[in-house]
Design a protein around this nucleic acid. Structure first.
Lengths: 157, 157
DNA sequence: AGGCGAGCTTACGTTCACGTAAGCTAAGTC
DNA sequence: GACTTAGCTTACGTGAACGTAAGCTCGCCT
């Protein structure tokens, strides 16, 4: 059985996807619990297809823009089923339109927030230039190499 | 004592701000607990100034783009104090730069998500056009007038 | 044969951002 | 003078999205 590397029939282990997308196995299993992905099984082990990989990508992208997993689920379902009752679809349509509105206004918020942060950066740079100019171009780790504390999450990165 | 409506010396009650920004008193008190706002008091009652109002606006804007309250706190502090130790400032600077990066990549995600949603909308519209064209332009409430279930939150609106 | 690493399930714990209920005060109002 | 309204504090509850620990299997390696 040729595994055909790089072909669309390629499959992935849970850890491969986790490394590629920087998440944990627990998260993937959690998404599966919620019905967002349904990988095949080889015995006990999960086997993710290219389609599964694409779904995961959409899930994470959705998360980053503030969608709840349940909402992401609705979107994903749509791509599989294509329909499931006209009124149900009408509801989805209305919701999606709402979401588009929200996202576009959110993009505005982002622009504003970036402005605020850039302002803050300017202040900080001014201050540092006068006191400790050598700290100006350091990345975070160079200043304080931190580890995640137990329970600490990486949010919205 | 002239209250000077519309002047920058104007003050607000908790409920006024809540109505203006669509949030709950509980939320404002929570932000106060976390040190994000510190309104004056008239006896027991909170009295919010224009500056408090501005801070609240920043808080909510920050939330909408996925910042944690703690992070928002850092940004806000910066506007008050202006400094607090050079290394501390250097850390903030690095963090803010990270945040700017994250936000800009997040804006990209939003654009992608909007594309996906618009695609989904097109599919749905096609489907509905063929089955129930009268449902095409309905807002959500017109289809299923829902109430929030206990504990349900309005996310990322 | 023993041990490691990857994966699995079950189940309880945790953080965040509040919700919600109980019980209080003080100001207006019928 | 009772009632409503707006506010307060304290404290426990909640939903989402996982973290974390316990204890199992399986294949591979030495």
């Amino acid at each position: 059985m040729p595994t055909e590397l790089r072909s669309p029939t390629r499959t992935f282990t849970i850890r491969q996807l986790c490394q590629e997308f920087d998440c944990t196995p627990r998260a993937l299993r959690f998404y599966e619990d919620k019905g967002l992905i349904s990988p095949e099984r080889d015995g006990m082990n999960r086997v993710y297809s290219y389609k599964d990989r694409a779904r995961l990508q959409l899930i994470l992208r959705g998360k980053r823009v503030g969608l709840a997993l349940s909402e992401i689920g609705e979107i994903l379902d749509l791509y599989e089923l294509g329909d499931g009752g006209a009124t149900q679809n009408a509801i989805s349509l209305a919701k999606f339109r709402d979401r588009i509105q929200a996202l576009e206004s959110q993009r505005l918020d982002i622009d504003l927030a970036v402005d605020v942060l850039k302002e803050s950066c300017s202040r900080l740079e001014d201050q540092l230039r006068r006191t400790r100019p050598e700290l100006l171009e350091q990345p975070v780790e160079a200043i304080r190499p931190r580890r995640l504390r137990p329970g600490e999450m990486r949010r919205a990165s």
